[in-house]
Design a protein around this nucleic acid. Structure first.
Lengths: 212, 212
DNA sequence: GGAGAAATTATTCAAGCGTATAATAACGTT
DNA sequence: AACGTTATTATACGCTTGAATAATTTCTCC
C-alpha cells in the first residue's frame, strides 16, 4: 500500500487553509461537527497535521474566531472620507455581503454560544467587539459635529447604543431571512431610521447608491 | 453493591426536568458539552432514562429549543391593555430579565448556530419566530391608529422592521454586556428611540416607570 | 544528486459518545 | 401484603473523538 502524495506548503498558507477549513466546517456542521478529522478533510490533509500547526483543537478554534471577527469588522474599520460618507459606508458595509449573510451569522452564533464556556474565546470576543461601538461612537461624534448638532458625551453615548443596536438587529434580520428583503431594503431602512434618530439628513442627494 | 434509590416521577414532571437540565447543560457547556450523560447528571438521573422519554438525543434538543422559544416570547405575547400600554410593556419585557440575560443569549446562539445543520431545528425556528415581527407589526398598527398617525401598510412594515431590529439589537447588547448599562438604561433608550422613529410620544407622563 | 531537516501521513490509544438491552426497584391496584 | 406494571438503574457495545507517536515523503541547500 502506497502513501498519498502531498506537497509541503509555506507555514502561513497552510495555517490559513486550516483556519478556513475550520470556519467552513463550523458553518456547515456546527461546532459539534467541526472535528479535527472533518477540518482535515476540508483542508485536504490528514488529521495529524492540524496538531503540527496548532497546539490543540481549542487553539485552532480560537484562531478561527479571531479571523472571523477581523473579517467582519475590517472593512467597516477602513471607511474613509468626510464624516457623512464614512457613516454612510459604515452602514452599507455592515448590512450587505459579505458581512451580512447566513454563513456569517451561523459562525458568529456558534462562537457567541461558546463565550461562556471557553474563557479564551471570551477574551477574543471582548477584544474584538469592544472597539466596534467605540468606533461607531467616534463616527457619530464627527458626524454630529460636522452637522453642527449637539455632540455632548451623553447624547453620543445614547445615540451610539441605539444606532449600534439598530444595525446589529438589521444585520441579524438580513442574515436570518435575507430572502424576505429586497435588495438594499435594509440599507434604506437603516438610513431612514438613523436620520430619524439623529434628527438630521444623511446621504440625501448622494451620488453613491444606498445599495452595494 | 446496591443500586441507587430513586422515585418514579409523573411523566410531565420528569420530561420538564429533563428539558430543564438540557437547557442548563447547553447554557453551561455549549451544545458540544450537552451530552446525554451530562444532562442526566443535571437532572439527577442516569443517562438511560433520557431515552425512555425521548426517542433520541436530537429529539430532546429539539424539544428544549421549542421550550426556550416559548419562554422567550410568551410574556411578550400576553401584553394587554390599550395599544400604548401594550407597546410599552412589550418593550420592557423584551429588554429586562428574564428575557434579557447572558444565559438566554447563550442558549439562543447555540440553537441559531445549528439551524443550518438540523432541518428539524430550522422548522421549529421558523414556526416560533415568524410570528414575532408580525405581532410587533400589529402592535404598531394599533398604536399608530390610536395616535391618529399614518398607518399604511408600507409604513408599518418599514417601522416594524426597524423597531424589531432596534429591540433585537438592544436585547443583544443587554445580554452580551448587561453590566455596562445602568438599570433600565436600555429601556429608556428603546423608548426614546422608538418615539423618534415613529415621530410620536410613547409612555410620556405614564404612571408606570420605564424600568421593570 | 545526495544529505539533512521537517512537513506530512499513517497508526495507535484511551476516553467519551449515543444507543441498546437486561436487571431491578418503586408504586398503584387489589 | 403479594402482584404486576413500568420507570429507572446498570451494564455493555460499537463508533467517534482529540491526542500522541512512529514512519515516510518532500524539499532545500550544498
Amino acid at each position: 500500500m502506497t502513501r498519498r502524495t502531498f506537497h509541503r506548503a509555506p507555514e502561513a498558507e497552510r495555517r490559513h487553509d486550516l483556519i478556513e477549513a475550520t470556519l467552513d466546517s463550523i458553518a456547515e456542521f456546527g461546532l459539534r461537527g467541526a472535528t479535527v478529522r472533518q477540518i482535515a478533510i476540508k483542508a485536504g490533509v490528514t488529521a495529524g497535521l492540524i496538531r503540527h500547526y496548532f497546539a490543540s483543537k481549542d487553539h485552532i478554534i480560537q484562531e478561527a474566531y479571531r479571523v472571523l471577527i477581523g473579517r467582519l469588522t475590517e472593512k467597516a474599520r477602513r471607511v474613509t472620507g468626510d464624516p457623512e460618507t464614512r457613516l454612510h459606508d459604515f452602514i452599507v458595509i455592515n448590512l450587505t455581503e459579505p458581512v451580512a449573510n447566513g454563513r456569517s451569522l451561523a459562525l458568529w452564533a456558534a462562537f457567541i454560544s461558546q463565550v461562556n464556556v471557553d474563557p479564551a474565546l471570551a477574551a477574543i470576543h471582548r477584544e474584538g467587539y469592544l472597539g466596534f461601538r467605540d468606533e461607531l461612537e467616534e463616527l457619530l461624534a464627527d458626524f454630529l459635529a460636522e452637522k453642527g448638532q449637539d455632540a455632548s458625551k451623553d447624547r453620543c453615548r445614547a445615540l451610539a447604543i441605539a444606532i449600534n443596536a439598530l444595525l446589529d438587529g438589521l444585520w441579524l434580520e438580513g442574515c436570518l431571512a435575507g430572502e424576505l428583503f429586497e435588495e438594499s431594503e435594509l440599507v434604506s431602512i437603516a438610513i431612514t431610521s438613523i436620520e430619524a434618530l439623529m434628527g438630521v439628513g444623511l446621504a440625501a442627494g448622494r451620488r453613491k447608491k444606498a445599495g452595494r
